[in-house]
Amino acid sequence: MKRPEEIFEEARALIEKAADGAAVEELRIRYLGKKGELTALLRQVGEIAPEERKAFGQLVNKAKSDVEQLITERKKAFEQAGQGLRLKAERIDVTEPGREIPAGARHMITQTIDEIVGIFMSMGYSVTEGPEVETVFYNFDALNASPNHPSRDLSDTFYITEDVLLRTQTSPVQVRTLLAQKPPVKIISPGRCFRTDTPDATHSPMFHQVEGLLVDEGVTMTDLKGTLDAFAKRIFGAGVKTKFRPHFFPFTEPSAEVDVSCFLCGGEDPSCRVCHGSGWIELLGCGMVHPNVLQVADIDTERYTGFAFGLGVERTAMLKHGIDDIRLFYENDVRFIAQFY
């Protein structure tokens, strides 16, 4: 009968000489398997004198664990070497182009509306929409436009019949909403508008506006300033300033046009593509809702006041992204659309 130390030495020599992982595995079976040489020794313990059995058992177990350790180490070494070769063979050229993942873009107009609407929704405004084909009543009469307001002319507005037209502004939604719900009313209304402009780089007979309306108790002109100033900073950057200039709209009074300081050059660059050196960009029209408009909806003008504003989507997008021709939006060349992925 071989002694455990002898078997261990023999196994150690063979493990060291083993050519690959498979050979190591064979050795594991030969020494540690069910019928392995070391396992067999334990079965022969009966042949050992009873007083030596304990020591013998300990020796065998030590030899077993030593062999096992050697085998594990040797196997690991072979695995590592093997993996290194495999990985080397699997080298790729990382400068090859990535595979095309389907990816379309929202239209620039949608993206701009999403951004504007998102800002106002975060301030508590709900999206409300109205029809593109409107009545003269909602588009003009209810908005306090005088019967002779020039914008009513056939030369300014597309008509379907004498009483039906393509809305020239998103403002009719103000009246529709005020007639449909009681204050507080806090809405934002994006949509298409139409005016009889012949298309050129800066005019389009169809364009998009976003209208806003807040009617509640205690709404003031200073609130209007605060709201639009916050909006301008969010859409053009925290550094911009706003300027409110008195203006005229039939459905608001006092009315204002709002300019923002040039977000691109800050008025420093005389050839600035955005402000042309003036330092200011006309952004939107706004004002306090005219009492005559509130009265159309039977709203108590002593109790409630409100403000409204409207801004051009194309204009905002053109300013923000340096787009120099409004017709690009409606040509829908995929090379244009893809730039705004």
Binding site: M121, V127, P184, K225, A230
Partner: peptide
């Protein structure tokens, strides 16, 4: 208009979609 100090209207209206 430039002398009007911007303020924020306080209400608890939540946006709906």
């Amino acid at each position: 208009y430039d002398k009007l100090e911007p303020t924020e209207h306080a209400d608890s209206v939540a946006a709906q979609v």
